[in-house]
């Protein structure tokens, strides 16, 4: 078993193990960082999220098929394994910091982000006033089926003219 004091990780049986203080790094940052490394290594988490999370990493290539060539490749990879896993562990620590920063920025910008989104949604949905104005515009306000817009003279003169017209026709 090797114990690196600078990064404080252990390598045993092709497994790399290290602990993360959750008072510094949140559990969600650990999840996000781990997610980015799922294609490179096998990762297993354990421990107490309130104190420290134990990260166990296993190299993927060490599980090649049991053919002779694969075994030879496996032997070769085992020689390099600690170096590769150490490198990945270091990258993991860096990614943790990156995720932590993303969380901080997200928290800082939460209000302005919500404001921008709400404004965008507000402008995208037509409001009631717009709908009423549209209805009014669509209506043909110049029509006057009940004759409300006409004056008394207009209504009565038209009526008399039409009566006179009828009378004169009868007289002839």
């Amino acid at each position: 078993m090797t114990d690196n004091k600078s990064f404080r990780f252990k390598i045993k049986d092709n497994l790399l193990e290290f602990k993360i203080n959750t008072k510094i790094y949140s559990l969600s940052a650990v999840y996000q960082a781990a997610y980015l490394f799922l294609d490179k290594v096998y990762i297993f988490l354990d421990g107490d999220p309130k104190k420290e999370v134990v990260v166990i990493m296993k190299e993927k290539s060490s599980f090649a098929s049991a053919s002779a060539k694969a075994m030879a490749d496996k032997k070769a990879s085992e020689d390099k394994e600690p170096v590769d896993l150490e490198k990945i562990a270091g990258e993991f620590y860096n990614e943790l910091l990156n995720q932590l920063l993303r969380e901080k920025v997200s928290q800082t910008n939460a209000k302005i982000r919500e404001y921008i989104v709400s404004q965008a949604l507000y402008n995208a949905v037509p409001n009631e006033v717009d709908e009423l104005l549209k209805e009014v515009e669509e209506e043909d306000w110049q029509e006057d089926p009940l004759g409300i817009a006409k004056t008394w003279e207009e209504q009565n003169l038209e009526g008399k003219k039409s009566k006179k017209g009828k009378m004169s026709k009868k007289g002839k």
């Binding site: 996000q32 781990a34 997610y35 096998y42 990762i43 988490l45 599980f63």
Partner: peptide, 17 residues
Amino acid sequence: KNILPDEFANYVLGLMS
């Protein structure tokens, strides 16, 4: 057979993110 348990554990972790 050789990879399934570890792939399974990785998949569960992926669902947690």
